[in-house]
Amino acid sequence: SSSLDGELYAGTSVDFMGANAAIFRTPVQGSSQHYIRTEAYEHNWLNEPDFVGSFSIPDTHSPDDDKLYFFFRERAAEAGHTDKRVYSRVARVCKNDVGGKRSLINRWTTFLKARLVCSVPGPSGVDTQFDELEDIFVLETKDPQNPTVYGVFSTSSSIFPGSAVCVYSMASIRAAFNGPFAHKEGPDYRWVEYKGRIPYPRPGTCPSETYDALHKSTKDFPDEVVSFMRQHQLMWEPVLPLGGRPILTRVNAPYMLKRVVVDRVDAEDGPYDVLHLGTGDGG
């Protein structure tokens, strides 16, 4: 959980069994903001998540476009009911989201999530997936809108236990959120790319004058935007790491990587990012 601008934002299990997990905002005293959360017991929103970190990152010159990014791993609804596969996610909400007026009352109307991929391309197109996000570090750069995101991942494979570090740009994260939506359709409810008309303003956009001066608040969003957001939390395209592969892998090592902290160090031949990595055994 993190406290940002006098609001408490958290990703947590609300009940003892962990079935009702939520990303929520709790206003503190003197705040004008409302209590707001993800929908309860809706697996397409959150499905047994383990939260890793949350960060506030500006999107444009306008503070109205500021977004909160949440990093977590969860059971992948798109992998099918019987498959217990875990995927890593980046989700985002608008800071000025106050929920809907007739529908999604006190619920996020801007909550979207995308899969974070960290994999090593293999022979015959079969990738080695590091699916379970363990830690995230957001390295500030000179441009506050474009920090560099470092993630530590592990595999759930019993064949080759291993861990990896992948690096992401905010440009690739935004590209996934600006891309096509995933959609469940047909008699077998398969996940496909949504090819229908996307309502205006584009779902996931913050109410701000940057893109749309008509809607001053999420309560002003048209009903079709809100109803679209009830069904379409997941983006179709995943976020791929810079260079298309991890910058570091450890496979069949006697330890797993669990933590990452990054320093940017200026040397004679330019800046370097120095990684400090922690293992599961305290090393």
Rank of each mutant, 00 (worst) to 15 (best):
T210S: 08
F228M: 10
Q231F: 07
R202E: 06
Q231Y: 06
P222Y: 11
R202D: 04
P199Q: 08
P222F: 14
F221L: 15
P201C: 03
D188V: 04
F228Y: 12
G196Y: 05
L234P: 03
T210Q: 07
P222D: 11
V226L: 15
G204V: 04
D188N: 12
H183G: 01
M235R: 14
K219R: 15
T205H: 03
L214P: 00
V225R: 03
I198L: 01
K184T: 06
T210E: 10
T218W: 05
K216H: 12
T218D: 09
Y200A: 08
P203K: 01
W191N: 01
M229D: 10
A213H: 08
T205Q: 10
I198T: 05
C206R: 02
S227R: 14
E185R: 06
P207L: 09
D223E: 15
S227I: 11
Q231A: 09
V226A: 10
P207R: 05
W191E: 00
D212A: 06
K184G: 01
P199V: 04
Q231I: 01
K184I: 11
R202C: 06
S208Q: 14
Y200H: 03
R190F: 02
R190A: 05
P187K: 03
K184M: 09
W191S: 01
Q231N: 10
P203N: 02
V225E: 04
H215V: 13
F228N: 07
L214A: 13
D223W: 13
R202I: 10
E224M: 08
R190E: 08
T205P: 00
D212K: 04
S208K: 14
F228P: 05
G186H: 03
K195V: 09
G196R: 08
F228W: 13
P199N: 07
V192F: 08
T210V: 13
V226Q: 12
T218M: 12
E193A: 13
M229W: 02
E185G: 10
S217H: 11
R190N: 10
R197A: 07
K216P: 02
R190L: 04
K195T: 14
M229Q: 15
G196T: 06
W191L: 02
R230Y: 13
Y189A: 05
F228Q: 11
G186D: 07
E224K: 13
H183D: 13
R190W: 03
G196S: 07
K216A: 14
P203R: 00
K216Y: 05
